[in-house]
Amino acid sequence: MMAKIKKIDANILRLIMILIVFLIIACVTQPTNFMKADNFRSMAKQMTEYGLMALGVGVCMISGGIDLSCVYIANLSGITAGLMMQSMSTTSSGSGYILLSVLVAILVGAACGIFNGFLISYLRIPAMLATLGSYQLFMGISIVISNGSTVSGIPEGYTMWGTTLLAGIPFAFVVFLICIILLSLIMSKTRFGQKVYLVGTNAKAAKFAGIKNNSVLIRSYMISGILSAIAGLLSLARINSAKADFGSSYTMQTILIVVLGGVNPDGGFGSIPGIAIAVVILQLLSSYLNMFPNISNYYRDLIWGVALIAVLILNFVTNKRKQARLAKAS
């Protein structure tokens, strides 16, 4: 049994410890403001959007690549849904058209992801460059279809989801939780998940072992695209609008989160729960800093950067020890 617990991953244990320590500090220093249901609700809403994208980036990084286009897939999906709802709200009644718009937006996200996967697998463009190019493309398409302006005038039948609570929990966060659970299962329990890890470790060996690398990669980026589309849809409901260049700074944040969450930047290792916990820690941190009016929210960047480098170094040192131990053992 002990061995089982040990297996859970030193990294996740460490992240949970950080989370607990942080909560204790927050409780002690800001008992009234921080420990309020309202505060938690607003945190839950805020973390959802970049959290979803971070999950997607995580899958791509585990597969040995990276996805820089998430934010723009999210915006493109949001704009698509927004424009559809806008144009149909005058002619249609009921909520069928809203559902249709949502479905189309998710399909758009999936298509963008498949496009990324195609560039990376069949055309063999390094993932960083492929998604660097495609983000310009997706952003460009968003600008073209939205005429470069903000898409607003979203029907209330849709925006109400931005404020809906399910058992006191914001709807968006429930969606986030479902995505975390589903993705964790996919990555740890299914054949596909295992293949993503193996392709990320050694793509050539994966090919020789009978894994269809191209299909695994395309599906990985498709997952990332779908998660981004969901993020875009939730953002559309929350802020009642969509624009081609919303949330540009999220791109780098998602990568930070994924590495903080213990994903190996070279691929092959990392876990979805780790990424999820990293998302929570960072949201707590940034909301906590907001409690101090005289501390700029930009301090968050500083802390994230330091945390990233610190986690890298920590992982480096522990890995080195682990390897020395293994070498001795065998």
Partner: peptide, 30 residues
């Protein structure tokens, strides 16, 4: 120093230090 000493991927390291520099510029110095 960080890249040479630990041999981390330079993309990730410079991403991290970017974040630090941005925090110093807009957070600490406002």
């Amino acid at each position: 120093i960080i890249i040479v000493k630990y041999k981390f991927p330079s993309l990730i390291v410079t991403l991290g230090t970017s974040s630090i520099f941005s925090g110093i510029l807009l957070g600490a110095f406002e």
